[in-house]
Each structure stands twice: as structure tokens, then as C-alpha cells.
């Protein structure tokens, strides 16, 4: 049972960091529905580099760097070219999903390195994730940079006339966001489940995307949501630990997805929106083109 709990927190870590990265980008007005693709890139490149060099550090760096580059690409399409962000995100997801299937294939199998040491049974990245949440909250709500990021996400033209460089602020957010997505992917493939197989994420990125909507763009609610979904995910993988023999293990795998749809539905009801809504950044998904 303890082991299950710890493993759940490990899973939560990946949801936390991935969803937080998406939250950061969205707060600046950039929607990236391709988060799963960026994570696949981070996970695959991280895995490849770590296995070939034998260094975890280089592996994580590779994951972060490729994530940042993909973030830059998304920024280029969405900020500079001003194209539809949903189309761009879809492009990034399919690019990630298609290309990693090809380049990662020769690396199919376990990583074959000594596991990263844990702290009280927990992955050290759990603490990194919690720290990132606190830092993100502080930066967004207490600093000038955070005010700028929130402002370009709410109304870029107002930010512009207040003397804020919208383009630079959005690029900064979307690149940082990409780096964190890549990092989250690398945690998956190097620490949580160090085995490469084709398209192994199977929806982590999409659930992280939904988590941002659940969080109402608040990092602390995001953390709570991530822990809930981490536990749920873990339960769906190992139902026999908690509820042995209740349902087929394949049916258990559908549970996190069904609950995601359910919660998302609840969140979008009028009842919920009029009471808790209005947190969504006003300019989310809208390109800003200076007139």
C-alpha cells in the first residue's frame, strides 16, 4: 500500500511538471495542445542520449533542450507567423508522435542503467515538482515578470501600450514551457518507467492539458489535481493492489480517461462557470498582430 502511494506520487510528478508547463504558456496566451508530442520528444531524446552516454545529466539536458526547441518552434508558428495555435499544436503532437516512433525504434527496450536514487522512497523529482509549483506561483502572482506574463495572456494590446514587449514575453513563456514539457517527458523515460517503446505515453500529455483546464490556471489547484490523477493513473495500472479482482485490467486503464471527461464536463457546466469561472486568460489561443 505504501509502495502504491509512493508510486502514485511519482506519477503525479510527471503530471505536475507537464501541466505546470502548459499552464505557464497558457497564462501568456499561448495554447499548446501538442504537449504530448513535446513530452515524447523529451522522453525519447533524453532516453537516447542517456543510454548512449551513460549520463543521466546529459539525458535530462537533452530532454530539456529539445523541449525548448520545440517550444521555440511553436512560438515561431504561433507568435511570429500568427497561425492558428490549435493547428500548430496538433502539428507538434503529430510530429512528435511520428518522428519519435522512427528515431526511437532502435532504442526499444529497457534503459539498462542504475536507477536514480530515491529520497524516502520518493523520486527526487517529486520535490522538484513541488518546488516548481511554488516558484511558478510566486513568479506569476508576486513579481513584475509574472504580471507581464499574465497581462500578455489577458490582453496583449493593453500590455503593448503599457510598454511591455508582447513578443518577447510570449517567447520567454513558450520556450520555458517547452523546456519543462521536455523535462517531464525525460522524467518519464529515465526515472518513472525507463523502458522505450513506441508511443509509450498513451495520453499523459493530453491528461496534463485537461488538468490545466481543471486547475483554473492556479498552480496549487493544479498540484492537487495532478496528485489525484497520478493516483488514479497508478491505480489503473495496478488495480490488484487496492481492489483486487474487481474489473479487467484493461477496463481499469480506461478509468482515468473516463474521469477526465467527467470532470471536464462538470467544469464546463454553466453552474460551475458562473461560480468559479472567469479564470481563463482572455487572449488564450489568439494571435497578437500589431495593427
Amino acid at each position: 500500500m505504501w509502495e502504491f502511494f509512493v508510486r502514485s506520487l511519482d506519477a503525479s510528478t510527471i503530471f505536475t511538471i507537464a501541466a505546470l508547463s502548459e499552464l505557464l504558456g497558457q497564462r501568456s496566451g499561448i495554447l499548446n495542445v501538442g504537449i504530448e508530442g513535446v513530452m515524447l520528444f523529451g522522453a525519447t531524446l533524453g532516453f537516447m542520449v542517456a543510454q548512449s552516454t551513460g549520463s543521466y545529466l546529459l539525458g535530462f539536458l537533452a530532454g530539456i533542450v529539445i523541449g525548448g526547441l520545440i517550444g521555440l518552434l511553436h512560438g515561431f508558428f504561433s507568435i511570429t507567423l500568427g497561425s492558428d495555435q490549435v493547428v500548430n499544436g496538433m502539428g507538434i503532437w503529430i510530429l512528435g508522435f511520428g518522428l519519435t516512433a522512427y528515431i526511437g525504434y532502435p532504442y526499444t527496450g529497457p534503459l539498462g542503467m542504475e536507477r536514480i536514487p530515491d529520497i524516502f522512497g520518493l523520486s527526487p523529482f517529486f520535490f522538484v515538482g513541488v518546488a516548481l509549483i511554488v516558484i511558478a506561483w510566486f513568479v506569476l502572482s508576486k513579481t513584475s515578470l509574472g504580471l507581464k506574463i499574465r497581462s500578455v495572456g489577458e490582453n496583449p494590446s493593453v500590455a503593448e501600450v503599457s510598454g511591455i514587449n508582447v513578443t518577447r514575453t510570449r517567447y520567454l513563456s513558450v520556450i520555458t514551457s517547452g523546456m519543462m514539457m521536455g523535462f517531464a517527458g525525460a522524467i518519464y523515460s529515465l526515472d518513472y518507467n525507463p523502458v522505450w517503446s513506441n508511443n509509450f505515453l498513451m495520453g499523459w500529455g493530453f491528461i496534463a492539458l485537461a488538468l490545466v483546464f481543471f486547475s483554473m490556471w492556479n498552480p496549487y489547484i493544479l498540484l492537487a489535481g495532478s496528485i489525484l490523477f497520478g493516483t488514479l493513473w497508478q491505480l489503473s495500472l495496478n488495480p490488484q493492489l487496492v481492489l483486487p479482482g474487481l474489473m479487467s485490467r484493461y477496463i481499469w486503464r480506461t478509468v482515468p480517461f473516463i474521469i477526465t471527461v467527467g470532470v471536464l464536463m462538470l467544469m464546463s457546466t454553466k453552474w460551475f462557470r458562473t461560480r468559479w469561472g472567469a479564470a481563463k486568460p482572455d487572449a488564450l489561443g489568439l494571435p497578437y498582430i500589431k495593427s
Binding site: 518552434l73 493547428v87 507538434i92 503529430i94 511520428g98 518522428l99 522512427y102 513506441n198
Partner: peptide, 21 residues
Amino acid sequence: GFGIDYALLGVLMITLVAFQF
């Protein structure tokens, strides 16, 4: 290597996204 059709899928998609412009 395996997955050449997957790789093509990715490349086609991202090129198309770029050409949206």
C-alpha cells in the same frame, strides 16, 4: 528503420502547419 510511415506523417504535418501561413 521501423516507422518510416510514422516519420513521414510527422514531417508532412509540421510542413503543412508551417505552410498555413
